[in-house]
Amino acid sequence: MPEILFVTWDGGGNLPPALGLATELARRGHQVRFLGHEANRRPVQAAGFEHEAYATARPFSSLAPGSPLAQLAMFGDRGMGRDLLDSLRRSPADLVVVDCLLFGAMEALRESGTRYVVLEHLYDAYLRGPWLRGPLGVGMRVRRLRPTRSLAGAAATLVATLPELDAGSRAPHATALDFIGPVVPPLGPRPEAREPAVLISLSTYAFPGMTGRLQSLLDAAGDLEARVVATTGPAIDPAGLRPAANTEVHRYVPHAEVMPAMSLVVGHGGHGTTMQALAHDLPVLVMPMHPFLDQPMVGASVAAAGAGAVVGRSAKPAELAPALAGLLAPGPHREAAARLGAAIRARPGAANGADRIEALLRPGLRGPGPGRPSARR
């Protein structure tokens, strides 16, 4: 039976697409296991998969991400590559699926001739644009890594988004990409009669100043004639917030459970949460938490499609309140969100990604491991 190894990291929104794809592959009878940071162990095992923590790679936690230099060191960590090849020597896999940002691990796969698939959990336009051309990409090359060559060396590149939202789909290299569609959880039934309701959910990643940003949103939503559900995640202490009477604050509530009853989602522009909201036909108000990450691009694409709006992270409640009220009301933004939702539902990412991976596998033939030649050079 084919065995597939997923290689990931503790980045928050990058893990659910990998788990969704892994779950579909396991449902089809494949053996799937994960290699990642120790913090990934609990969610990976909760999904039913074996998890192996990096043995020598530098420690990293999304709750204490440190400086950009620390992130740079993690993405380019050759220790990940060594741990990955050691794992494959102990337990070979037919195929490796590697997170698109782990260039230290990716280079080890490419140089060893191990067959691998890259999973892009964000816009390809961001990865090959601001990321690779910006400070992080420059940092990879300073470390003598070859990120562009490693991306090109993959047997397949799965882009878990909608091509109509990703400007990268119009780039020359896009013909080599598989736009499988967003990997979102199964959609629950919608209540027949829904009261106006707003979900406010920022990142699980510990961005500086995020508690104050969330409080501004709660203050702005306090006068809405709507139920407000706010989730803090592990990065924000709910005890430090001052919710209004119409607001309930939770450390964690599965989005798949609450979104069917929502009318509007407010987020930081995380790709996964945004795609899940759109899959439920919900408009999105985006408050990016970091100007150099993909969040502004995600917000801009949703706004350009007419399905939401973007506000600055320093926006005050007086500025946020009319934006919330406008998106909560009826209008063309709801039709635009529904159009994108229909496109997401028509392009099921987990099923399409599993189809593409299965096309790469050959029954009874174990893929090349470390030191063994690859069929693709």
Rank of each mutant, 00 (worst) to 15 (best):
H250K: 04
P208T: 03
H271W: 02
T157E: 11
G104K: 01
H51N: 08
S112E: 01
A125E: 12
L264V: 07
A375M: 13
L88H: 03
T232V: 12
G66S: 03
T231R: 10
H37Y: 08
A39H: 13
G129W: 11
L361S: 02
G12E: 09
G308C: 05
L361M: 03
G331E: 10
D166S: 11
R347T: 03
A304C: 10
L177D: 12
P332W: 04
A47S: 11
P147R: 13
L327F: 05
A239M: 02
V258T: 14
V32E: 10
P196I: 07
G306V: 01
R339A: 14
T161I: 02
G353N: 04
P16H: 09
L177H: 10
L145P: 12
A93K: 00
M140P: 07
P130D: 03
A70T: 14
G153P: 07
L151I: 06
V32S: 09
P322N: 09
G66H: 01
L293H: 14
R372D: 10
R90C: 08
G76I: 06
L15M: 12
A230M: 07
V302P: 08
R170D: 15
A346G: 06
R227C: 07
V183D: 06
A336T: 02
G212S: 12
L102M: 13
P186R: 12
P291Y: 12
E120N: 15
M259Y: 14
T175K: 15
S61E: 10
A346F: 01
F49H: 05
R339N: 07
Q45P: 01
P16G: 11
L285N: 13
E107N: 06
G13V: 04
L85I: 00
R213L: 12
T273Y: 13
L63K: 07
H250F: 15
R115F: 04
D294F: 04
F60C: 10
T8D: 10
S201L: 08
T273A: 15
H250V: 09
L35R: 13
R128E: 08
L21W: 06
G168A: 04
P254F: 07
G113W: 00
V258G: 13
V97F: 03
A375T: 15
A230T: 09
